[in-house]
Write a protein that binds this DNA or RNA. Structure first.
Lengths: 301, 301
DNA sequence: CTAATAGTGTCTTTAAGACATTATGTC
DNA sequence: GACATAATGTCTTAAAGACACTATTAG
């Protein structure tokens, strides 16, 4: 029997059913996207011979309206009727950074009932990685009050509790966002509970100083995802310019992973992911370094 | 200045603003959860001396209403006003399987504009892993028309295309869901496009035979996530009963990963994740095997 | 020569793949 | 003894950690 002719208990075909369907009878939440836009920039050099240090930055927007007026939030906005969630995320990315050639991935959807005091809002978070050299000098002089914040992420405490049937891991994480004008700080307890077969992760915000909504949790989640992915994939190259030295690449790995790496091992690890050029850095105050580019032939070998 | 006293451009405090906020002015999508409930069960023994083979099963529900009437869909439902998305997922899990002590994790949120012909519906997919021995004999004799389907997942084709600036990976995957009564089949092309810095994954449904909505894509995504997680974490133990032999555990790894493993290497890999008991299997028609249980002290060492 | 970074060599450790070998039960 | 699975041993390969060493520039 033809699918188009199947009838339901009311005797309707699919076409007839859809014509009668009243979408308004259910209470619907609002759906938004929130963007975690990361970049890595060079800090001032201490000394003309030294390499400049790099730091991980996250874009935040100062709220000019209630709720959380005056606090900082992730850039984002509503998913409108005629766009997919991905399209909404791309649109937000474009309006904030004015670039669209960007690495982006969906992270997690946040749906606690009271996460927004206005009304029920479900938010889908996305991570984007941009090369700072392709950014216009937007955030900083802009009506929007978007600013880049230095991201520091540190684990304050780790605890493992074994009860009779339960196993509980607690991790207290401190996130510090800073720039010349503001310092925001969040302390989040991440609780993994294993009781019986149940495994569940809960987050508890202990301090969220100047960070709006549940965005501190989103940042915590995103930094962990970023670290995981930098370790196992090639996403770090999205933070690099076309040409780079291996030391610069290593610095980007170090600042995203939050730990120092040994250069011999690092070079072995990324050897197949880069192609050498015949260009070198100049005027460095020390031995020039060969410039490399990403090897697009490498993908998860 | 006290946060409670901050006023916006209309001169309202946060409390005043929230009292006036009209949530109904934006068009809102419906939000649903869709559950990918996996289990592993023993198939018939070929021969009294042989071990029974295991197979991976997924729970599907036959649709009795439009749209896609008569086709099979993932169990799921609307996220209601007073529950978080996680709570909605747990509720669906409980109604389908009647157990709540289950491993569950959020997978991905699907938000294409026309993914549901009724109205704009955004769906958050969750994966749950259940031990078949803790399941009631629900699906099978139940008004709901829920059934377990055998899951087969095979990669039909892999292609890598290098254009000037673009790199495209295409993978064609065939998913076959089968049980005594039905065979459902989906063929999905997964396209990863890397152009410039942009990396984007698209899925194209080539065949979706008897599978409703975009659920074939959800299944494809979930199987890949399941495989990844089985390889690197301990989630496979959620598919095991309290006591098990190492061969049974290996079978569960093999059936979820879709490949055979060498037992020596497998035993080394999982050695720290299990604790031996002093019990053995009996009447096996061959050498008895020691029974093990999960070692809760092991977590991502 | 010195400061500073670039880049290589190699020994060790660890994990995984391949495959052979031994062990132990039922029929 | 035959069958089937259980369990271990060991050789090889590959990746990663540790750390010492050499190379090259500006000043």
């Amino acid at each position: 029997m033809n699918i188009e002719q199947l009838r339901d208990k009311q005797g309707l075909t699919e076409v007839e059913f859809l014509q009668k369907y009243d979408a308004s009878i259910y209470q619907r939440p609002s759906v938004t996207v929130d963007m975690l836009i990361f970049t890595v920039v060079d800090e001032e050099k201490e000394n003309y011979r030294k390499l400049s240090e790099k730091s991980l930055k996250l874009l935040m927007v100062k709220r000019g309206v209630h709720p959380y007026i005056g606090q900082w939030a992730l850039p984002g906005g509503f998913v409108t009727e005629n766009e997919s969630i991905d399209e909404a995320a791309l649109r937000e990315l474009k309006t904030e950074t004015n670039i669209d050639d960007v690495y982006m991935e969906q992270l997690y959807t946040w749906g606690d009932v009271n996460r927004d005091p206005r009304t029920r809002v479900i938010s889908c978070s996305y991570m984007a990685l941009v090369d700072c050299r392709s950014l216009e000098v937007k955030a900083g002089d802009d009506a929007d009050d978007a600013r880049w914040f230095n991201v520091r992420y540190s684990v304050l405490e780790e605890k493992k509790t074994m009860l009779e049937k339960d196993l509980i891991f607690e991790k207290v994480v401190k996130i510090t966002l800073s720039n010349d004008e503001d310092i925001l700080e969040a302390i989040i307890k991440v609780i993994e509970k294993y009781s019986g077969k149940t495994a569940r992760v809960e987050r508890e915000v202990i301090v969220s100083n100047g960070i709006a909504f549940d965005h501190a949790e989103m940042i915590q989640y995103a930094v962990e995802r970023l670290r995981n992915k930098v370790e196992y994939t090639d996403i770090a190259f999205n933070l690099m310019p076309e040409l780079f030295t291996l030391s610069e690449l290593q610095q980007v790995y170090e600042v995203t992973l939050g730990k120092e790496l040994l250069s011999a091992a690092f070079r072995r690890k990324i050897a197949d992911m880069v192609m050498e050029t015949n260009q070198f850095t100049k005027d460095a105050g020390h031995r020039p370094a060969k410039l490399f580019r990403f090897n697009p032939n490498w993908r998860y070998l």
